Amino acid sequence: MADDKMTVKAERDPETGLLTGHDGKARCWWHGGLEDYQRYHDTEWGWPVDEDRRLFEKVCLEGFQSGLSWLTILRKREAFRAAFANFEFGKVAQFTEADVERCLQDAGIVRHRKKIESTINNARRALELRAEFGSLAAYFWSFEPKPEDRPQTIDFATARTLGKTAESTALSKDLKKRGWSFVGPTTVYAFMQSMGMVNDHLEGCCCRQSVEAARDAFTRPVTA
């Protein structure tokens, strides 16, 4: 979400960044009032995740999103799941050049060779991470920023969310050192937002308090 380029289709409050929907509820502006995008905002974005398959899917899709709108990726997500074995990274790690060619012929996904090859590479690196830390969740959540270290997340003058943080830069650097690709600091920060490592729902958004309550109740995974 940090680098989403979609033009919103509804009026946002320039002082708060909030958008009031047809249901009378105020939300972060970026879903633009689109039904599927709003549903993603309400039910997925920012909610804490500790399931390795879902984490792998999220980090891969954020990589595919680089240079595109997240809405484009969201609307292709089921096709991505079909193409990449539901992001079961143990299976994706076994993909061959034939699978790369198959994906390049799949009009339902983003047909970008380097991103496809990156997903297969990252699946193999994910197996290494799981072997070292016990789970991807334990590794990723170890980069969660402390609440007191959280900076202002939105520039209301430009309606842009924060692109990267010290933690996303550190996670990006460590992933790259471990051989991952398409995991730049901005991509990683969008992943951190998506998986609930940070709660960037705006003050006054109808989801902010429930997401924060879920984060408070969430048991952070630790290395096995």
Rank of each mutant, 00 (worst) to 15 (best):
K114C: 00
T153G: 08
Q193G: 07
Q209Y: 06
R125C: 13
S210W: 01
Y189P: 14
L104Q: 14
A170S: 14
F95N: 05
P185S: 06
T43L: 09
I73R: 10
K91Y: 08
I73L: 12
R27T: 03
K76H: 02
R39E: 11
Q193C: 07
T96D: 03
G108T: 05
R102A: 11
T223M: 07
R125G: 09
R160T: 10
Q65I: 06
V188S: 14
F182M: 12
T223W: 06
N121Q: 05
R160F: 08
A217S: 11
V59W: 00
G33V: 14
K5Q: 06
E15M: 15
A83I: 02
A213R: 03
G204T: 04
D155E: 06
W180A: 00
S172F: 01
D200N: 08
R54S: 03
V8R: 13
V222P: 10
F143V: 06
L71F: 11
A217P: 07
S66H: 02
P147M: 04
K177S: 14
A10M: 04
L129F: 15
D42V: 14
S135M: 12
S172N: 01
A190D: 03
I120Q: 01
T187Y: 03
L19S: 05
P147H: 06
E51K: 10
W30H: 09
F218C: 04
R150M: 15
F95Y: 10
A157S: 14
G24M: 13
F133N: 15
A26I: 09
E128C: 04
I109T: 15
V198A: 07
E44T: 08
A137P: 08
P48A: 11
I109D: 15
T158E: 05
C103A: 13
S210G: 04
D200F: 08
F84N: 02
A159R: 03
L136V: 06
Y40C: 07
K9D: 01
M195H: 02
Y139L: 03
V198Q: 07
Y189W: 15
V59Y: 01
R81S: 01
L129A: 15
C207D: 04
E212Y: 11
T165Q: 02
H41Q: 05
L127Y: 05
F64C: 13
R54Y: 03
T219I: 15
V59L: 03
A166M: 09
E117P: 09
A138S: 14
I154S: 06
A79R: 04
R124E: 08
D42S: 11
V92L: 11
A157R: 14
S66R: 01
P221A: 14
H41I: 05
A26P: 11
E35Y: 08
R111M: 00
G163M: 12
S142G: 02
L175I: 02
G179R: 06
T165W: 02
F191K: 04
L127G: 03
A85E: 10
D52R: 02
R160I: 07
W45F: 03
R215W: 00
E117H: 15
R130N: 12
N199S: 09
F218H: 08
H112M: 13
L61W: 12
A137S: 14
G63W: 07
Q105E: 09
H201C: 09
E212C: 10
D106T: 08
T7V: 13
